[in-house]
């Protein structure tokens, strides 16, 4: 497990902690997440973390799921 292998992740906050998303962000930060954006309306925290810390981050109170920040593409174009 390479500690240097940092990846962008999307953290989904569970419903019970939506109102307290800033506290969850702090706990995630303490657990190794480099928080880049806290989105309180949709209950999402975006950030970067070493691949090796993902399991640890998932155990943070208030976290529902952690997923890779996937790339998306436009679904249309010229005939």
């Amino acid at each position: 497990m390479d500690e240097a292998q940092v990846q962008s992740v999307i953290v989904t906050i569970d419903d019970a902690h939506l109102a307290d998303i800033q506290s969850v962000a702090h706990r995630l930060g303490a657990a190794g997440l480099q928080v880049s954006r806290v989105m309180s309306t949709i209950g999402i925290i975006a950030g970067r973390a070493p691949a090796s810390s993902i399991a640890h981050l998932k155990a943070v109170r208030g976290v529902l799921e952690i997923e890779a920040d996937r790339e998306m593409h436009a679904f249309g174009g010229a005939e």
């Binding site: 962008s8 880049s36 954006r37 999402i44 975006a46 997923e67 920040d69 790339e71 998306m72 593409h73």
Partner: peptide, 11 residues
């Protein structure tokens, strides 16, 4: 280029 990260989409 027609692509974007999920974090930007969620934002």
């Amino acid at each position: 280029n027609g692509s974007g990260s999920t974090s930007g989409i969620l934002a």
